[in-house]
């Protein structure tokens, strides 16, 4: 589904991603772990070109999206993204937050989008907040809205950039529950996170990144029980 070849990214002289090769299949739940500054967020943001790679190619469903001639807006419509700081639009109601993109991109008519928003809000149990503004919501509620806002575009893959890192500990659970549900429905997911429990429980593959390289990748059980790379062993001994 997503094929990454020899991807590199540098900010000035600083090389953040150094020749990453990766293939993500439909239905996979790829969890990316690593210390801060390891390049994991940059890697994720390269997948929908929020960061422009400095080298290599990314292919999404047969389209080479790193080609400058590709209409990136159309590609992004099929890739949902959830941010660490939610990034809800504070100048719109929750309902408008959800319906804006489907309506403006021509995916749905306003009425259809409203119905879809109602269904999505029911699903995360926030229908009563439809006409509220983002500032009236708690962090966990905001992130659940951000997830369904991305889902309203009916994406083929969902990218999560540390979705629980800015939340109060109490609220992490409600967001992870929505993500687990989504995973159970078969959504293809790429998740950058520090939640080891989530990686173990939901991930179908776990990657460990440091210094712009993928140092180890494995299915979660073996990843956590028999880490081979010394840097990963050190990382796990500190966080577990």
């Amino acid at each position: 589904m997503i094929d990454v070849k020899n991807l590199s990214k540098s900010f000035g002289d600083h090389l953040v991603l150094d020749g990453i090769d990766q293939h993500i299949c439909p239905g996979e739940k790829v969890v990316i772990l690593g210390p801060s500054g390891s390049g994991k967020s940059t890697f994720l943001r390269c997948l929908n070109l929020l960061e422009t790679p400095t080298g290599g190619t990314i292919t999404f469903e047969g389209t080479v999206i790193t080609d400058p001639k590709v209409n990136i807006d159309q590609v992004r419509q099929k890739m949902g993204m959830v941010f660490q700081h939610f990034n809800l639009f504070p100048n719109m109601t929750i309902r408008k937050n959800i319906t804006l993109a489907p309506v403006r991109t021509g995916l749905m008519k306003q009425e259809e989008a409203d119905e879809a928003a109602t269904a999505l809000l029911k699903r995360v149990d926030l229908l009563d907040k439809a006409d509220a503004y983002p500032n009236q919501l708690s962090g966990g509620q905001k992130q659940r809205i951000a997830i369904v806002r991305a889902l309203a575009m009916k994406p083929k893959v969902m990218l999560f950039d540390e979705p629980t890192s800015a939340l109060d500990p109490e609220m992490v659970g409600e967001v992870l529950d929505v993500m687990k549900e989504l995973a159970a429905e078969g959504m293809t997911m790429v998740v950058v996170t520090h939640e080891m429990g989530f990686a173990r429980e939901v991930g179908s593959r776990v990657l460990f990144m440091d210094g712009g390289h993928i140092l180890e990748e494995n299915e979660p059980h073996a990843f956590f029980s028999q880490p081979k790379n010394p840097r990963l062993q050190e990382f796990l001994s500190k966080v577990l």
Binding site: L50, G80, F83, T105
Partner: peptide
């Protein structure tokens, strides 16, 4: 992050600016 969120949803530059 506001324009990143708009663009990540597939909205174009002008729509992101406008709305």
């Amino acid at each position: 992050g506001q324009s990143e969120a708009g663009r990540s949803l597939g909205l174009g530059y002008l729509d992101t600016m406008r709305f």
